[in-house]
Computed example of a mutant assay.
Amino acid sequence: MCKSRILLVEGRRTVGGGQIMSRRICDVLSTNYDIAVFLPDGESPLAELLQDYSLHRYPMLEYHSGKKGVSDVCRFIYNMWRTCRVLRRFIRKEDITVVYVQAPSLLPVVVCAVAGMDVQIFVHLHVVHVDRKVRLLLNVCLQQKCVKKIIGVSDFTLQQLSLKNRRKSVVLYNYIDDCIKKTVSSDTCEKPVISVIADVMRIKGHHVLFEALQSSALNVEVLIIGRIVEVDYYKELIDKKYSFQYTFTGYVNDVERYLEQTDLVIVPSVGFETFSLAMVESWGKGIPTIASDLGGMKELVENFLPQYAEILLFSPGNIEELKVKIETILNHDILYREVSEKVHEVAYNNFSKTSFRKKLLGII
């Protein structure tokens, strides 16, 4: 018996947390469905990540992040026209009945492409749009009858929706592949390793961690795991003299290997994050995390580890507060072990592939 076909739509060429989840969503859905992926043209890290699935490419001009300008409007019009034609032909030819949108920026294209067809759309939201016009357009598209369900990676993500759209939305936290606890103990580490798993961009707040450690007496090593996206920001970081050792790894496809070397993970973002895959993957290893008291990070800690919120969250951009919390957890072995055990327990019980698969297949 032939499996029903699902087309997953992606909107980036690079790989971040959302794209890692695209791969994991494909892995989950492929047990019950035949999966095809619609992604931007050209060879790319994303194409390599999803190479085990049937890939179908479309032409796309990428938008600028943040507030949109005239050039973004022009790109939007081009993408709407060109991509919509390609997508509509493909859906008809391949008899697609379900489209799973992993790129909200392409939702208007998908809605137009399926007009007049018996096709259901499921939208997975993992970004929060700050531009009011973009948010309005998003809600208008989501209200269409063809959109059957809106899946948010956190409740924070769904707060951008209208009341009508909230009624057909559900929170589904991302899952992690590995929940095997590493051997961690702060008292055996002469030089603890602190990691940041994030592309090098100012909004990710690497400078906050660097300044916090510079003002601390701790002897640590720092790993910055992620692509160098903003070169000027990267140069700004490395041009300063720091008393601690640090390494920029660039993009890696084996983050787990670096987590095995890590004692503490910091998520120092100064802008909203809808979910932190870095946090829950670290928890799965039993690695404590300290994160900015924002968005999805705040939601994860307050929902699953409220008793440790004072330790694991700090005011965004507050260098002194971050320094104190890093010193507190690394200098107190009993506390470190306690938090390590608890974060692993939370990850094991709440972010498993089995649980995610059951919930997602129940939605589709």
Rank of each mutant, 00 (worst) to 15 (best):
251 Y>G: 01
258 Y>F: 09
289 T>K: 04
108 P>T: 15
249 T>H: 04
223 L>G: 00
235 K>W: 01
85 R>N: 03
358 K>S: 13
301 V>Y: 06
86 V>C: 00
56 H>E: 13
1 M>V: 08
363 I>S: 04
107 L>F: 08
248 F>Y: 02
207 H>D: 12
154 S>C: 15
289 T>S: 05
219 N>P: 05
157 T>H: 07
23 R>C: 10
42 G>I: 06
200 V>E: 04
194 I>G: 01
161 L>T: 07
214 Q>R: 13
228 I>Q: 04
331 N>S: 07
324 V>H: 00
254 D>K: 08
190 E>I: 07
60 M>T: 07
295 G>I: 06
239 D>N: 14
36 A>T: 09
139 N>P: 07
173 Y>C: 09
123 V>K: 04
160 Q>E: 14
39 L>G: 00
364 I>G: 04
14 T>I: 14
358 K>L: 13
279 M>Y: 10
212 A>M: 14
34 D>M: 12
16 G>R: 04
214 Q>T: 10
336 Y>E: 03
78 Y>S: 14
42 G>V: 05
340 S>C: 06
28 V>A: 04
32 N>G: 04
318 N>D: 10
316 P>V: 09
175 Y>M: 15
13 R>W: 11
109 V>T: 07
103 A>K: 07
280 V>H: 03
243 S>D: 06
103 A>S: 11
142 L>E: 03
102 Q>M: 15
137 L>M: 13
157 T>F: 03
261 Q>H: 14
342 K>L: 04
171 V>R: 08
188 T>H: 09
350 N>I: 02
99 V>Y: 02
315 S>E: 12
204 K>C: 09
324 V>G: 01
50 L>P: 00
239 D>Y: 14
53 Y>D: 00
255 V>W: 05
206 H>Y: 12
95 D>N: 08
194 I>S: 04
214 Q>S: 05
293 D>R: 03
75 R>K: 06
77 I>Q: 10
241 K>A: 07
258 Y>P: 02
34 D>T: 07
202 R>M: 09
90 F>I: 03
22 S>P: 07
347 A>Q: 12
146 C>N: 06
363 I>E: 10
352 S>Y: 03
173 Y>K: 12
233 Y>V: 00
14 T>Q: 11
39 L>Q: 01
70 V>I: 14
126 H>R: 12
164 K>T: 11
284 G>D: 05
286 G>W: 14
237 L>Y: 08
20 I>T: 15
